[in-house]
Simulated assay, not measured.
Amino acid sequence: MVLPPTVIGLVLLNTLGRNSGLGAFLWDRFNFSVIFTLTGAVIATTIVVLPIMYQGVKSAFLTIDQSLIDVAKTLSATPLQRFFRIILPNCWPVMLSGILLSFCRALGEFGATLMVAGYIQNKTDTISTSIYFLIQDGRTQMAVYLAVVNLFIGLVALLVIQLLGKKDVINK
């Protein structure tokens, strides 16, 4: 969470590139490379947002009343039953909020995805990289359009998060 996304992208580039051990293995065995692919962009973005997702899930699990889990144990509920019947139903709004925050952060990811996936138009471009390169090409109106779409998606996600927070408060 403290590393700049560009540094994460550099680490991934050195880890997954064809000259690295893992990258060479993927290329030699499967003729597959994640560098300059949409898969690489997804991997980079996932690693960048993973700390946000982790914190969201952790805080969701901490909201569970321990006495509910203890009661389920006394009633001989298995760990899977406790997880699916007690923990998940009681913390899904907080977990969904974490997922939405991670998604919003992923929409804005630029550094790691550009390092790993590059910018190949209609292949590895993301909203953020497209906006940047549209500005570079002087196509400001299209860049503004994409920025508004990105903003709209983010606002809808934040609205859902707020509604989930109010539902969570109402239920308690």
Score class of each variant (00 low, 15 high):
11 V>F: 14
11 V>M: 15
11 V>Q: 00
12 L>K: 04
12 L>A: 03
12 L>Q: 08
12 L>E: 06
13 L>W: 09
14 N>Y: 12
14 N>P: 00
14 N>S: 06
15 T>N: 02
15 T>Y: 11
15 T>L: 15
16 L>E: 01
16 L>V: 08
16 L>M: 07
17 G>S: 04
17 G>F: 11
18 R>F: 00
18 R>C: 03
18 R>Q: 13
19 N>F: 04
19 N>I: 00
19 N>G: 07
19 N>K: 14
20 S>T: 08
20 S>F: 09
21 G>N: 09
21 G>P: 03
21 G>D: 01
22 L>E: 09
22 L>P: 04
22 L>F: 14
22 L>K: 06
22 L>H: 02
22 L>N: 02
23 G>N: 05
23 G>R: 07
24 A>G: 09
24 A>R: 14
24 A>H: 12
24 A>M: 10
25 F>K: 01
25 F>P: 01
25 F>T: 02
26 L>Q: 02
26 L>P: 05
26 L>K: 07
26 L>Y: 04
27 W>Q: 13
27 W>I: 03
27 W>C: 05
27 W>H: 13
27 W>Y: 15
27 W>M: 13
28 D>W: 09
28 D>M: 07
29 R>L: 09
29 R>W: 11
29 R>A: 07
29 R>Y: 08
29 R>C: 03
29 R>K: 14
30 F>D: 03
30 F>S: 03
30 F>H: 08
30 F>W: 13
31 N>V: 05
31 N>S: 14
31 N>M: 09
31 N>W: 03
31 N>A: 09
32 F>K: 01
32 F>P: 00
32 F>I: 07
32 F>T: 06
32 F>W: 10
33 S>W: 01
33 S>I: 00
33 S>A: 02
33 S>C: 01
33 S>G: 06
33 S>V: 05
34 V>N: 03
34 V>D: 05
35 I>P: 02
35 I>F: 04
35 I>R: 01
36 F>Q: 09
36 F>Y: 15
36 F>D: 08
37 T>N: 02
37 T>F: 00
37 T>Q: 03
37 T>G: 00
38 L>Q: 15
38 L>M: 14
38 L>F: 15
39 T>L: 12
39 T>N: 12
39 T>F: 12
39 T>Y: 13
39 T>G: 01
40 G>I: 09
40 G>D: 10
40 G>E: 05
40 G>A: 10
40 G>N: 11
40 G>M: 10
41 A>M: 02
41 A>H: 10
41 A>P: 05
42 V>T: 14
42 V>E: 01
42 V>M: 13
42 V>L: 15
42 V>Y: 12
43 I>K: 03
43 I>W: 10
43 I>P: 06
43 I>G: 01
43 I>D: 01
43 I>R: 05
44 A>R: 11
44 A>Q: 11
44 A>N: 12
44 A>F: 05
45 T>Y: 05
45 T>A: 15
46 T>E: 00
46 T>N: 01
46 T>I: 08
46 T>R: 02
46 T>V: 12
46 T>W: 06
46 T>Y: 08
